[in-house]
Nucleic acid binder design. Structure first.
Lengths: 335, 335
DNA sequence: ATACTTTACTGGAACGTTCCTATTTTGTAT
DNA sequence: ATACAAAATAGGAACGTTCCAGTAAAGTAT
């Protein structure tokens, strides 16, 4: 790809000449230094506009070895919760005066490796990664050892020496399941999700924990894995009903799964919320507005984003701590 | 944001020293030049691995004034079609050997202006922009005049001197409406969308065109604007039924609107596809899998992405042409 | 072997910024 | 006015790469 027509670009020298100060002073003004006189600052600011000067971050970044570019490496942009999360992250990062760029791995670890390799060349200041399935601790640690600040989100990679920000999955499904049990249901299935990602184990653990604690018998057969897509949810619901035809309630791995499950229920003339109670996880925007409104575990993208930025700010201590963002059970019409 | 611990980084000089050639030769190898002997290439490649050399794009980009970074400026990542589109673009761009980054304006023109201003500093090779409402031709033209290759997608900004890639909206809704009419429906509403974006006018035009051509009387009152969200679709459907309680069919601005409309239908005990025929626009993944499967106008994200890349490759001619990507009416169970 | 062409390689300068040190200007106390 | 400190400004070097022009090596024809 050719660059823009290379007409000798406007540099600090040009601005300096026009404003009658030195390039160094111009640089100070650009960086908002307090040790430059108001008179000089005014002149420089005027000259910047006059000349149409554009700051060259390549040069700055080369010389200073600093960067304010944060890379968000997301697992799947077409997943609505991921999109919501990315938007939250963007916002928080922008408020810190930094700039974020998004790249999408599509849940493919090879793509992830390639993308991160490229991003390293761009001198990014930090990586926020929602690791694709198959991500190894070795890979992450390597990145960290090279000196890049890294935060993992949503998914844990065991053995990775990084801070990980994720929702309190166990508490989430545990609360949801408890709620379903309190409603008097006993024949309960856990739908969707996939062993290859860490949240699955946690959310499933929350479910089993609540079930055992309440002494409700349940079978592993009714914990049905699936793709985390709407269609996956349909399939899972179908399978569950095949095994136990009079299921009373389902706890879903996430909202998208719940959407699919509801679709299947309707196709066999079961009313969600009446014939079968259902509860999701994530609290997508749609969940509040659909009919019946979906009970679900609210995970605040903003809170996650805030936690991530907090970590980013104190990254020095190559901290490998785990930050659990609190969740909230939201009871609506579907349960 | 501090950069990574600045341990003197490995440069071409280090690689040169280790491999016993000059920095220039190393540079040639890195750039895959054909005019370097196999022997030298081997040595350099070995040394690159040994030393853990990381290419510094800031330096390269500074010196060469070239860049292979393509900015995708998208209007709203939480819109499923936008997400799908972005994924398609990423793929095509990657196949061209370029690198893409995504930023999200959230339909806010101020954010768009700010983001693009920042991106200019990063020496991006080109902009792919889905313009936020309120984008002015002046702004776009300014960007073009500064020498940046720009392509608009999905939405037209009248007066902008750029290539615009967008689906054949008029043909799309026209076909969809024709189809609905052929099914024998006469009381037809057009739901959703918003005057502030150009696709609305086009899709509405396709609808009215087909209606007039078939001599089906219709009222502007039944063309109901709304937010392009699921909830917007619900509201629009509600409004439509308030006006004409025995509506036979609805043509929707897009699939998301259709989802909302279907939800509302169900809440008032109307069966989509039986009591009211419905057709969408976009063909989201879910539309094929839902029940009843949604009839819709398929817009291939891949084809749009391919067209965009084609334009990008021949951008020299500051072409302001309009590239219509063909659509396909897909008839499923909902109509 | 010699002259000449082609191919492979090299070192210096340049890209636009920031860092560092040095110098000038301004302010303050005597 | 003078001496001194503090603040403001300036100039050179450096970041790691690519470009350019030139040199060395290899290949070809006489």
């Amino acid at each position: 790809m050719r660059s823009r027509l290379t007409s000798k670009s406007v540099t600090v020298f040009d601005v300096a000449r026009v404003s009658g100060v030195s390039k160094s002073t111009v640089s100070l003004v650009i960086n908002g230094s307090s040790k430059v006189s108001d008179k000089a600052r005014k002149k420089v600011e005027k000259a910047i506009i006059e000349t149409g000067y554009v700051y060259n971050r390549d040069a700055a970044s080369l010389r200073s070895r600093k960067s304010n570019l944060i890379a968000i490496v997301i697992n799947d942009l077409t997943n609505p919760y991921s999109a919501q999360l990315v938007v939250g992250l963007e916002q928080q990062i922008r408020e810190l005066g930094l700039f974020s760029m998004i790249v999408n791995t599509g849940e493919n670890v090879e793509t992830q490796i390639q993308l991160v390799k490229n991003l390293k060349e761009y001198n990014v200041a930090a990586f926020i990664i929602c690791p694709a399935p198959g991500t190894t601790a070795e890979w992450t640690n390597n990145l960290v050892d090279q000196g890049f600040p890294v935060v993992h989100i949503m998914r844990e990679v065991t053995g990775a020496k990084v801070a990980t920000v994720l929702p309190d999955n166990i508490r989430g499904t545990s609360l949801a399941t408890q709620h379903i049990i309190e409603r008097g249901h006993r024949k309960i299935a856990f739908l969707g999700g996939n062993e290859s990602i860490s949240d699955y184990h946690q959310r499933l653990a929350g479910f089993t924990e609540a079930m055992t604690l309440a002494d409700v018998p349940f079978s592993k057969k009714l914990c049905i894995q699936s793709n985390t897509t709407r269609n996956g949810g349909r399939r899972a619901m179908e399978q569950a009903l095949d095994i136990v035809s009079d299921i009373e309630a389902v706890v879903c791995f996430n909202d998208v799964i719940a959407y699919g499950a509801i679709e299947y229920m309707r196709s066999v003339d079961k009313q969600p919320g009446k014939d079968i109670a259902i509860v999701g996880f994530d609290d997508l925007k749609d969940s509040r507005l659909m009919s019946p409104a979906l009970s679900t575990v609210h995970v605040s993208a903003t809170q996650i984003a805030i936690a991530v930025c907090q970590v980013l700010k104190n990254i020095k201590d190559g901290s490998r701590n785990k930050i659990l963002v609190d969740i909230e059970l939201i009871i609506r019409e579907s349960s």
